[in-house]
Design a binder for these strands. Sequence first.
DNA 1: TTGAAAGCGATACCAT
DNA 2: ATGGTATCGCTTTCAA
Lengths: 295, 295
Amino acid sequence: MQFKPDLTAKTLSGMRSMSVGLLTDDRDGRFSFPIMAGLTEALADRGVLVFMSVIDGDGKAAKASVEAFLNRRVDGLVIAGSRTDLVQSLDLSGIGIPVAYAVAGAPPNSCQICPDNRHGARLAVDWLKSQGRQRILHVTGPEHHLETKTRLAGYCDIVGSVAPPLFGDWSEAWGRAAMLELRKSGRSFDAVFCGNDQIARGVLEGLHDAGVAVPNDVAVVGFENWEVLAESARPPLTSVDLGLKAIGRRVGAVVLEPALQANVEGPELLPCSLVVRQSCGGADESQSTAGDRSD
Amino acid sequence: MQFKPDLTAKTLSGMRSMSVGLLTDDRDGRFSFPIMAGLTEALADRGVLVFMSVIDGDGKAAKASVEAFLNRRVDGLVIAGSRTDLVQSLDLSGIGIPVAYAVAGAPPNSCQICPDNRHGARLAVDWLKSQGRQRILHVTGPEHHLETKTRLAGYCDIVGSVAPPLFGDWSEAWGRAAMLELRKSGRSFDAVFCGNDQIARGVLEGLHDAGVAVPNDVAVVGFENWEVLAESARPPLTSVDLGLKAIGRRVGAVVLEPALQANVEGPELLPCSLVVRQSCGGADESQSTAGDRSD
DNA sequence: TTGAAAGCGATACCAT
DNA sequence: ATGGTATCGCTTTCAA
């Protein structure tokens, strides 16, 4: 028969509400949206829906959203893709429901799920080496950023610390500038591993301007696999995928079943994967690595 | 005093649920996310929350999501930024709650809210003319797309149909190819108005490769103001902003108060605005036009 | 005007 | 095992 229990009544009578809240202060949804997609996907089967609220950096609004969630009796809360200032303005300690942080700053002893940046970097550099590249440079973001440090660590895992990385900001402009700088310095290299895709785009442009052929003369790999950037780069950019959708799925599972939580000490790291395109050769061999490439 | 009524009980007892459902099949959230942000913003004051569900093109999943929304007794439904196939696989006719389509294909006689592409195009071309440009070309997307036609119409409103547009796809590669084609044909021009930002990026690159100076020799303006692309273009790209966030706000108002609906015949058009950067000169005059530039 | 009682649609605890 | 009933927290209706 076609009986559909009313979720509202079900909730009122003390059961779980079969809904979770998602809070983000992302600007363009670069991280939040794929996470959200994974979350929906994972929770749809279990019949739970997600309340989403995007706020712009204001602590008051964040607090109000959480209150609103709680009034709806959400079973869990996820904070996604936000800058760390959100967590600071929000005290979720005695909230009474599971909270998980997805690709977001998190307070100590909380459930935090992030991509394994270090492993992702190793994947990229390994691939570069397997393609016969000898002198792999690293141009990346601000030195003090956590992502910068972690990705750098993965890079060093493979090549050691012979070649000092070039720190800058996460922009195309910096990627271009770095190429200029490099040419002036006369350092020789046959590959550059970039801290993110925007930098990689800039590097590609800088190389193009200088007349060096990619991937023949130098190979380039990016990070984050922001498809709109990576796919239309010239040539299409090989990049490390963050597996955001998988993170969304995982976060959904954990928020509903806190027992699944792996370790309370430090973040839970989910695998990245390498999406091979044409910027470092080998694209036709259609290499693929662990994880879920679509974010 | 600090009394917070329980929304669940309120809902059960026959009131409105103070929640709406948002359904999208967007891939990267380019449209859905800003719309969502506007929606949240508009509804937060009224104390209504939004259930969001992102599905990937599957008709079954869409239907299931709508059912789930209905079980939660949402007060309204918005379909956002989706390809038209979603509306086809979904019959929302006798659903009993207001439905609005935001930047999405919509069935006849439904509430549809979209950016005023034609007006946006006029804004762009007008600006180009005001900067003294005489021969403005239009390179754009597939001829049969609705956006292509509407933007072209706006272009023709200003310059007439002297210069035939160049149709292609919405990619950077096409923008580059168009420049090559143009150089071969020997057509002379001092500005190009692009159908979207990706094409504009390609055009910019093509121009750069050919050694023509932007904006001195030729000015370029894009469409959609996808900030990650526009801001880091070389030079930063002047572009028509779609006002997606405002659309989200409007859609929220309409879904809660269907009486506000402007016209049932055809879509309700919200203003675009021009965001002036350096790709067509005049950036320092910090020109701005109607609408809300942040999406 | 104010206060008490009857749903709303399920769950859960009792009795039988 | 099985049916009846109190309960969840609020709105609405009806008395007083």
